[in-house]
Structures are given as structure tokens and as C-alpha cells.
Design a protein around this nucleic acid. Structure first.
Length: 653
RNA sequence: GGGCCCAUAGUUCAGCUUGGAUAGAAUGGCUGCCUGCGGAGCAGUUGGUCGAGGGUUCGAGUCCCUCUGGGCCCGCCA
């Protein structure tokens, strides 16, 4: 909190100074300079140089002498200690470090929600992620989606958004029919071999049956029959299909929960289809003039969305035979998320998840409704974020535009702040040349290969987690030979999950992740376990300190924080002070990676402190107490940052 | 043909939204540091025409334009 206070004060003081000089206040930045120049730095003099036709250094000197120094004299309570001009033209500030340390550490020690600013003010935010077709097991590409979505959910929740997480289940498509054909008509065993999860088994059948279609037109015919049955929804085949998708879905959820991902609601496509939501949405589109019936041209007889910007084509919504296209089917769901159509669903408790929360599911059976007491209010989001890979960007852009028209705002100008639909896209996870080779694909000179579920070219999510766990198991075992194996297993699993979660969020969304099985096994350097290790180290110090009460803030030891003056302590305090600004930025710009970056940086700064500054071996007991408080505050801060990215704090590892 | 994204050290990436002080990590290679609060760590060293060219600016990795290379998208499929 306090770093923000410092920045705010600095910004305000400078703006006041400039306007009292009779100048227009231009855009200027407050940033952290290389440390020899101070704690904060301002470029205002550069920005004014042109307007005033004078050298930046002169301007900086004038601002300081005439305005800033008198301000500091008049305000001894300021967080700013001193201010200096630099030849180059910067205005450099030094912070009143004792004040910063005491404010920061007190806050970090006392506030369990330290670093979680109220950005959302309760804004209802709907996040959809995962949404894997229920015909296969998750692969590493799905992991990126689920982990990204879950991390975003954690960040939004921490910043006081009222978050609802949706997982969309497309249970009525061709991919589902394929599994039914494989099990019913192609002679594959109904049960997977021992040790193979049902979703994984079906994923294999999906590959095989698609191969078989090419040489067996009879089965291809069966596929059409099955699809028809599924869509009509009454037959025994349809019941079988829904049984299969439910079983696959349950297996997929086990994998997701293993990654510490959670949801609030499952939406089933089949129910959206029969709920009449499409018909209602279509009425809305017609009424608003967004859907246009074509009487001539290549789309004659279709309802289309007209192109509204360059480079786009008209988009067919309803074919000339009256059926809705794929994109059209997404509109009612999106409209439902925003509360633009009446909610046709009842809700029932599907199951309880790993974190104790209830996972709900939609149903059209009113008698099955569990939601009478305390209506969960899943839809009508004020802000809707849909996480799908960037290949869908074009369609999502159209949907987003259509919805912005329906809510009466201009999407681009955010005129309607209360109904916002965002597509959060991210680049693909591809396989490295080495990993592709291990799957039997030689890709020659290419750097990477795109995965394909249908061709069987993918790396299974559970396989990766198992691999990581066994690697972590070895490491834990050698370091803790006396631990019971069950405890080693549990710890190894936590390390594995943290490693993969960190790995999936640490880089930017628009960067392709080239997944390499061997590289993914790293537990050193810029990884999740690095954070856990720094945390565990801090906890060992606290555990070994003779009197745990020494870091209790109620001892009135704030003045003692002034003893934390080595550059390592100062750097650590300043890093701790930054968390809430980082989290705010992450929530506003939907940027999970910023939190990962920060956590890594915080852990690095602590490791440096750990190396250079003795705590338990310090002979001055006042200084030791202050350092213990710093270590405690660090641990709490890192823990809060790790919680946002789903990296588990471990006492020992 | 049209649209979107990427290009920074051998490799994987920060930094670009909001231009500013010697471009930072990790990893790999080489070298040190455990009778010391946990060596999953720390330190040193190696390694960069910030894809190319132009422009704007007092100042460009960052903004604009062009080009090159790579990826994705553009159906009355889903």
C-alpha cells in the first residue's frame, strides 16, 4: 500500500508545482530509476522543455527550488525524504525509508488481504474458460487455457470482483458422435484397459475412429445417424451419448481439479439448443436490425450480420435452410452471460470440488432445481471475459461487436461500462521438434508443430503432471530421507502442480509456448518451485527463532524497523511494498503474468537477503526482532502473491 | 488477395500500453561458495548489428511507415 502512497504523493506534488508555475500539466511518468539515482524519478522537466524553451535541467532545478523544497519543509510527515535534480534533466526523489518500512511491514503483518486492492467494487465478472469438448482428455494446450482462466479468476476475486466461472460443455457435436460410433459400432471395448482414464481412452478412440472412417464408409454413415439421434435427444443412442459425455466430463474435471482449477457452473450446449434461447436472441437481432435477410447475392436466403469494418465479410447467421451456424449458436450463450435474454435454466448441485466449493450445472428440469434458496445468480455479468485461443479472435470480435450494439454502447469506446464483453485470447501451445519426434513425427527443419487431438499428436495433461511429480519425488526424497513416502508424494505433487502452473502463466499471452517434455521438467531458476523454496526458507527461520512472538506487531516495535538499513533489507521492504500496485495492474489489464513476474522478483530479492543478512545469528536482539518481522512480512506477501497464481506455499520441501 | 499476432544473448523469455540515465532475467558453457538461517540457493564469467530499412523526436528496443522471415484466421463446417 505504501509504495502507492509514495507514488501518489509524488505525482500530486509535481502536478501542483507545475500548475502553480502557470503551465499546462503535460503527461509525465513517475518511475523507479537505477538505484544510484534514488527511489523514484520523474521526467516532467523533459516534457516541459519544449513548452518553456529551456533546458530540462534548469526546469528541474526551478521546480525543486521554488516548489518541492518548500513543500517538504512544510510537510514533515511526507513519505518523500529529499529531492534532487540530475544533470540529464530528471527529478530524483528519495523516500523516507523509515516511514516506508514501518507502514509497509505493519500493513503486511496485520492485513491478511495485504496486496489485494479493491479494484472491482463488487463488479459481477463472468469468466469462461477450459470448455474442452467432452470426447477426450486434456492436453497441454487445454492446460494453458484452464490455468490462465483460473489465475485470472483468482486475481479478479482478490480485487473484489464478484466472479462467476463458467465451463462450457459442447455435448452435442460430431466429436461426441465419434465416440459413440467407436463404442457401439466399431467394436471397441466399453472399458479402458487398467490404469487408463476413461477420457484418455476415448481420446484414443477418437483418433482411431477418424482413421477408420476413411476406409469404412458404413461407419461414416453410422456417424450421421448417431448425430441425428443426439440432436433429437429422445432415443437410446442419445441417452448413451449423454452417459458417455458425462463420464468423460467427470474425468476431465478430475484433471482440472488436480491443477487446482475450479468452476462455479457447467453450461451444456445441448440445453442451450433446446431452451429456445436462440430463437429469442434471433428476435433481438432482427428487432435491432443487426440481422439482415439477404434477397440477393451469394448469401441469398440467409440471415447475415453485415460487415462493419474493413477486411471483414458479411457473416452468415442462419442458412438458407433455416438452420443456425456455429457462430450464431454462440450468440445466445454470450447474450445469456450478459443477461440480455431471459434465463431459461434451473440449476442443480453437480458436485463438490477440491476446494470445498459447489460446482453447479444447468438443467431444464425444474424439479431438479437446487437453487431456490439463495439463487446463485450465474448470469447477468457486468463484465464478461471469455478465454479462448486466438484462432477464434475473428469470431469473438464479431460476437463482441454484436453484443455491444445490443447493449447500446460502442464497444470500442466503452460507452457502456456496465456491459462489457471481452475475448481474452492467447497463442497456441505447440510441440518442440524433439517432443514431436518422441510422438513419432519428424518435422524436419521446423521449430515446432501444432498439436492435433484428431491425429493423436498431443501431450496429455496428466502425463505431464505425473512426469513432473516423479521428478519432484526424487528431489524431495533425497532431501528428506526420513519422510514417510505418503508425505513425499503429497509434497512432490504440490511441487509438480506449482511448476506447471507457473510455467503456463509466466509469459505473455501472445507468445506461442513451444512445449518440450524435457525442458518442462526443470525445477530450477525461473520456476514455480523457486518461489516455494524461498518461502520454505523463510519459514525455517521463523520456526527456529526462539520466541515466535517477537514478530507480533503489537509489541510496538515499529521504530525498530529503522534498523533494517542494509541495501538488502531496503530492497526487500520496497519489493514487499509493491504488491498491491502489481495486483491492481494485473486485474485492470487482465495480465496474470505480471503477478508471476512479481512473485519471482520478490523471491529473488529475499534469496539475496537470505544470503547476505543473518537473522538468527544476529547478536543485537532488537535488530534480530526487526529482521524476523521482515522475514515474516516477506512470507505473508509472497504467500498472497503465490495464491493468485496457484503456487502452493510449502513449509518444507 | 484481405485481416490479426510474433521477431531482443546459443536457447526460452522480461522490458514496448505511458519514448529518457550503462538493454535485464532464466537456461546452457566455464569458475567459485555448504563445520554458517535449507546449495531446488548465491556470486563471478561467457554471451546482444533489440529481424532489415526509412521516418518522427533533443532522445527510439519502445511511436509511425515499408520490407523480410515465421505463425494464425478469412465456409450456407464446427
Amino acid at each position: 500500500m505504501t509504495f502507492r502512497l509514495l507514488v501518489n504523493e509524488t505525482r500530486r506534488v509535481i502536478a501542483d508545482a507545475v500548475s502553480s508555475m502557470g503551465c499546462q500539466v503535460p503527461d509525465f511518468s513517475i518511475s523507479e530509476p537505477p538505484k544510484e539515482f534514488g527511489d523514484l524519478s520523474c521526467n516532467i522537466a523533459f516534457q516541459l522543455a519544449k513548452q518553456l524553451r529551456r533546458r530540462p535541467f534548469e526546469i528541474a532545478t526551478q521546480i525543486i527550488n521554488i516548489h518541492l523544497k518548500p513543500y517538504l519543509e512544510a510537510h514533515p510527515e511526507s513519505l518523500i525524504l529529499s529531492v534532487e535534480p540530475h544533470q540529464a534533466g530528471y527529478i530524483n526523489f528519495r523516500v523516507n525509508y523509515q516511514r516506508l518500512a514501518s507502514n509497509t511491514l505493519r500493513e503486511a503483518l496485520q492485513n491478511p488481504r495485504y496486496g489485494y486492492p479493491d479494484v472491482g467494487k463488487g463488479l459481477h465478472t463472468i469468466i469462461e474458460h477450459t470448455s474442452v469438448n467432452p470426447n477426450k482428455a486434456l492436453h497441454v494446450g487445454h492446460m494453458r487455457n484452464a490455468i490462465l482462466g483460473d489465475t485470472l479468476h483468482r486475481i479478479m476475486k482478490a480485487t473484489n470482483h464478484h466472479v462467476t466461472v463458467l465451463n462450457y460443455v459442447d455435448d452435442s457435436g460430431l466429436q461426441v458422435a465419434d465416440i459413440v460410433v467407436a463404442l457401439k459400432f466399431a467394436g471397441f471395448a466399453a472399458k479402458p484397459p487398467d490404469g487408463v482414464k476413461f477420457d484418455q481412452y476415448c481420446g484414443e478412440l477418437y483418433v482411431k475412429i477418424n482413421d477408420i472412417y476413411e476406409s469404412n464408409p458404413l461407419l461414416a454413415e453410422k456417424r450421421k445417424l448417431v448425430l441425428q439421434n443426439i440432436e433429437e435427444g429422445k432415443s437410446e443412442l442419445a441417452a448413451f451419448a449423454s452417459e458417455i459425455t458425462r463420464r468423460i466430463l467427470e474425468e476431465q474435471l478430475i484433471t482440472c481439479w488436480r491443477m487446482k482449477v475450479r468452476y462455479d457452473l457447467l453450461n451444456f450446449e445441448s440445453q442451450i439448443v433446446v431452451s429456445q434461447m436462440w430463437a429469442r436472441s434471433f428476435e433481438l437481432l432482427k428487432k435491432s436490425g443487426l440481422a439482415v435477410f439477404e434477397t440477393e447475392g451469394k448469401n441469398r436466403g440467409c440471415w447475415v450480420i453485415k460487415a462493419h469494418e474493413g477486411g471483414e465479410d458479411d457473416k452468415v447467421l442462419v442458412r438458407s435452410d433455416g438452420t443456425a451456424t456455429y457462430m450464431a449458436k454462440d450468440i445466445p450463450y454470450a447474450a445469456w452471460k450478459l443477461g440480455l435474454v431471459e434465463d431459461p435454466f434451473s440449476y442443480f448441485r453437480f458436485t463438490v470440488q477440491w476446494d470445498g466449493s459447489t460446482l453447479w450445472a444447468t438443467t431444464l428440469d425444474k424439479k431438479a432445481d437446487d437453487s431456490i434458496q439463495g439463487n446463485p445468480n450465474f448470469n447477468s455479468g457486468e463484465q464478461v471475459i471469455t478465454i479462448i485461443d486466438s484462432r477464434q479472435a475473428r469470431l469473438q470480435k464479431i460476437i463482441s461487436w454484436v453484443l455491444s450494439q445490443l447493449t447500446g454502447g460502442s464497444h470500442n469506446q466503452n460507452q457502456n461500462q456496465n456491459h462489457r464483453y471481452y475475448h481474452l485470447g492467447y497463442e497456441a501451445v505447440t510441440l518442440s521438434s524433439e517432443t514431436a519426434k518422441s510422438l513419432g513425427m519428424d518435422i524436419g527443419d521446423k521449430q515446432f508443430m501444432h498439436m492435433s487431438g484428431r491425429k493423436g499428436l498431443f501431450v496429455n495433461a496428466d502425463y505431464i503432471m505425473d512426469n513432473l511429480r516423479s521428478k519432484a519425488h526424487e528431489e524431495v526424497k533425497t532431501r528428506n530421507p526420513s519422510w514417510p513416502d505418503e508425505h513425499v508424494q503429497r509434497t512432490a505433487e504440490e511441487i509438480a502442480i506449482s511448476a506447471i502452473r507457473y510455467n503456463m502463466v509466466r509469459q505473455d499471452l501472445d507468445k506461442i509456448i513451444t512445449f518440450d517434455i524435457k525442458e518442462s521438467l526443470s525445477l530450477e531458476g525461473d520456476t514455480g518451485p523457486y518461489l516455494q523454496y524461498a518461502y520454505a526458507r523463510s519459514q525455517r527461520i521463523l520456526e527456529k527463532s526462539a520466541n515466535p512472538a517477537v514478530y507480533n506487531p503489537s509489541f510496538g516495535m515499529e521504530e525498530q524497523f529503522a534498523a533494517l538499513i542494509s541495501e538488502y533489507e531496503v530492497t526487500l521492504v520496497k519489493e514487499i511494498a509493491r504488491l498491491d500496485m502489481v495486483v491492481e495492474e494485473a486485474a485492470k489489464s487482465l495480465s496474470p503474468k505480471s503477478v508471476a513476474r512479481y512473485a519471482y522478483s520478490l523471491a529473488t530479492v529475499f534469496n539475496l537477503f537470505y544470503e547476505k543478512v543473518p537473522v538468527l545469528k544476529e547478536s543485537d536482539s532488537d535488530i534480530m526482532r526487526a529482521r524476523l518481522a521482515l522475514v515474516k512480512a516477506f512470507g505473508l506477501t509472497l504467500r498472497n502473491a503465490m495464491a493468485l497464481i496457484g503456487v502452493t506455499p510449502l513449509e518444507k520441501m
